[in-house]
């Protein structure tokens, strides 16, 4: 690890100012991903700006919905009574991620900012366009069992690793950020981006901006929700495929549906076409299967991850069936 400067800040404005003066610096909160990346030599910020002292830990329900501070700890969110009662999909997704130790350290803002776990990204002796633009994509012709089936490019087939973000995409959250030009809001599904020709950018955060919190609009998805995560072991493994499903039912008719997948794309993958299809339909395995077929349009495998083409629809149907229980 290369030596770096370290500063603590106590206001959002101070944080933004320090970063403006140190453009090669980085904010640090839980550090559960950033420190790994620094140890591996993937990134070498010249200054770490510790934002743990900022007053951004609050979890609060308002008339509009749920507001979560960027520094709220993952486990504080998943254990929050309001979250468990009114936003259970978020709690389920959080508990599916990482390990209790990591969830006790990782923050919500950091969860949004975590980088892909693609092994070629982590090994600085291998090519990776995300780490070193122009060096090539190691995974494209290499070992790509964990990789994307949607929205990838020939420059990058990495996936976003978060579980929480899959639920937030389904719940149509909004992210609040502060920067040198002031505050702005970003729709969750616009935050993470697809790799396209520049996979080095994971998201649409502008230079110098800090995530301060997020809002989940009030929603009817309190009962028929499920977060299905298929992984190689029962805990502490990234998703082969995950599905966040949420249904609002009137009798057996679907009034409203939300679906998003994890482990399949460079960003949490919202299944809007499947959602539209389901609205007004009977909640049945048959309709879920049709919705899953729609979801898989445009999916492609790269070799080791071809199984995801088969596992994907199966997982969507299962997540919807589980949401019914």
């Amino acid at each position: 690890m290369i030596n770096f400067e370290y500063s603590r800040v106590s206001s959002v404005k101070a944080a933004v100012d320090v970063l403006a003066k140190n453009p090669t610096g980085r904010f640090i909160a839980g550090g559960t991903n950033l420190v790994d990346l620094m140890k591996k030599g993937v990134t070498a910020p010249t200054r770490l700006i510790d934002i743990n002292g900022l007053p951004l830990k609050e979890i609060k329900e308002t008339a509009a919905g749920l507001s979560i501070g960027a520094l709220a700890i993952n486990s504080d969110v998943s254990e929050n009574e309001t979250v468990k009662k009114n936003y259970p999909l978020l709690a389920m997704a959080l508990n599916a991620g990482a390990s209790p130790q990591l969830r006790n350290a990782a923050t919500v803002g950091g969860n949004l900012m975590q980088r892909t776990r693609c092994t070629y990204f982590y090994d600085i002796a291998m090519p990776c366009n995300k780490r070193q633009p122009g060096s090539g994509c190691g995974a494209l012709q290499g070992y790509n069992r964990m990789h994307a089936i949607f929205g990838a490019s020939d420059k990058c087939i990495a996936v976003h690793p978060s579980d929480m973000c899959v639920a937030l995409a389904a719940l149509q959250a909004t992210i609040t950020v502060s920067g040198p030009k002031g505050e702005r809001k970003i729709l969750f599904t616009d935050f993470h981006r697809l790799p396209g020709t520049d996979p080095s950018k994971d998201n649409t955060l502008a230079k110098g901006e800090l995530i301060t919190g997020l809002n989940i609009p009030k929603n009817p998805f309190t009962k028929n929700v499920y977060y299905l995560k298929i992984r190689d072991r029962a805990s502490y493994a990234f998703a082969l495929i995950s599905v966040a499903s949420a249904l609002e039912l009137t009798g057996n008719t679907i009034k409203n549906a939300r679906l998003a997948m994890g482990g399949v794309a460079h960003k949490p993958w919202r299944l809007t076409e499947s959602e539209k299809f389901l609205v007004g339909k009977t909640a049945s395995r048959e309709n879920f299967t049709k919705a899953a077929e729609l979801a898989m349009k445009g999916a492609r495998g790269y070799g080791h991850n071809n199984f995801k083409l088969k596992m994907g629809p199966v997982a969507i149907v299962e997540a919807l069936m589980k949401a019914m229980v």
């Binding site: 776990r117 092994t119 002796a125 291998m126 190691g138 070992y143 072991r233 029962a234 493994a237 990234f238």
Partner: peptide
């Protein structure tokens, strides 16, 4: 254990990618 034979290098030489059973298993 997974090797990328093009480079002769390991691709899962860490505990996130090389899985052993956890208590829940």
């Amino acid at each position: 254990g997974v090797i990328d034979h093009r480079y002769g290098r390991w691709v899962n030489n860490n505990f996130a990618d090389y899985h052993v059973a956890v208590n829940a298993d």
